[in-house]
């Protein structure tokens, strides 16, 4: 078990390194750097000025070295300007060559500075993640019980009328991506022209205090797309368990149907949905980005869109680290959880 964990962790680390390097590479392509130089210094620079600006700010080094600097395993660049002032990646104004730290990367806890929001990346990401955590939490509270209930009810008696109607409902919900259901919900429940005006069409006010009125639509929109998928997986797992030998034995012994479902089937049927729910997190991230843009809720997804749209390299890198971390950790949890929940699997 320990070896399995260690191997998984090693693989995870390797994946994270590869992915962040790819993001680093893509955000630091020459056209992107040129755009950065023009937006930071002056929009009317010619090519030679752009090149010299990039050189002065340490962007001319090989990509691998700069990736190392960003990670914090390679010393940050320093140079002395013509007027004798020390400049460098890790040099704050007022530092001298002695006081400035040698390394400043994410390993040292230095995430850099956002060019769009003009603030420390770590503060922005922490604040925005907090906002998104509320959204995700509410989505999970709605999505998981609803999906499990639908799946179990549908899977109890395969082919029954209830199964058919609930399965159709879950197929319909998987066919409705967030930007479709969000638009339809706003048109029905929030539009001032024709709608019912029950809820608010934006969630901007939910950033300060969450109310039923401003938070319902975003949460339902994200949850709806996930419910169908989890419910179908639960149904599949439930129907499989219900045809197992031990269920038949229980039926033949005269155990009542509800007893069978609750006592015997449910526990085994919920193992597979657990992994599915865990693996659903990366997809939720997708939904979060769409819904936060649609409802103007300035959380993590909104930050990611802003950072990517404005080529804010360090913020985008931080966002991708968080995203990749979420994906890999949920994968790990789902693997470990599967082993723990399912006594039939043994890792040698």
């Amino acid at each position: 078990m320990l070896m399995f964990l260690l191997r998984r962790l090693g693989l995870m680390l390797l994946t994270a390194l590869c992915l962040t390097f790819i993001v680093f590479l893509l955000t630091n392509l020459p056209p992107n750097l040129e755009k950065l130089a023009k937006s930071e210094a002056s929009a009317r620079m010619d090519d030679a000025q752009v090149a010299s600006w990039l050189e002065r700010n340490g962007y001319e080094q090989p990509v691998l070295i700069r990736y190392g600097e960003w990670l914090g395993v390679v010393p940050g660049w320093t140079r002395t300007d013509d007027d004798g002032k020390l400049r460098g990646r890790c040099v704050a104004s007022g530092d001298t060559a002695e006081t400035a730290p040698r390394y400043c990367g994410i390993l040292q806890g230095d995430w850099g500075f956002s060019t769009v929001f003009k603030d420390e990346v770590s503060t922005i990401v922490a604040k925005r993640l907090g906002l998104t955590a509320w959204l995700m939490g509410a989505v999970m509270l709605l999505m998981v019980p609803a999906a499990l209930l639908i799946g179990v009810l549908a899977g109890m008696k395969e082919g029954s009328r209830l199964d058919r109607s609930l399965s159709t409902v879950s197929i319909a919900s998987t066919a409705t991506p967030e930007y479709v259901s969000g638009v339809i919900f706003i048109a029905i429940f929030a539009s001032s022209a024709v709608g019912l005006k029950w809820f608010s069409g934006t969630a901007t006010s939910a950033m300060d205090h969450i109310t039923f009125k401003n938070f319902t639509l975003p949460v339902v929109t994200i949850a709806l797309y996930g419910i169908g998928y989890i419910a179908r997986m639960t149904r599949a797992s439930m129907t499989e368990v219900m045809t197992a030998q031990y269920i038949r034995t229980a039926r033949l012994k005269g155990v009542s149907f509800p007893q069978i479902v609750m006592r015997h089937a449910l526990r085994n049927a919920l193992i597979a949905p657990f992994t599915v729910i865990m693996l659903q997190f990366p997809w939720l991230l997708n939904g979060v980005v769409i819904v936060e843009t649609l409802f103007n809720y300035k959380g993590f997804g909104f930050t990611l869109v802003e950072a990517a749209g404005n080529n804010d390299i360090e913020l985008l890198l931080a966002c991708s680290v968080v995203a990749v971390f979420v994906v890999l950790v949920t994968q790990l949890i789902s693997d470990i959880g599967y082993v723990f929940l399912n006594p039939r699997i043994r890792i040698s």
Binding site: T15, T27, A308, S320
Partner: peptide, 26 residues
């Protein structure tokens, strides 16, 4: 390993990185 790498990449992030005019330039 490569396929897991691509699968671990959040789709939206990948789109935002790949589908830009700058990327077409390169």
């Amino acid at each position: 390993f490569i396929s897991n790498l691509v699968l671990a990449f959040p789709v939206i992030l990948l789109f935002y990185l790949l589908v830009t005019p700058e990327m077409v330039e390169t």
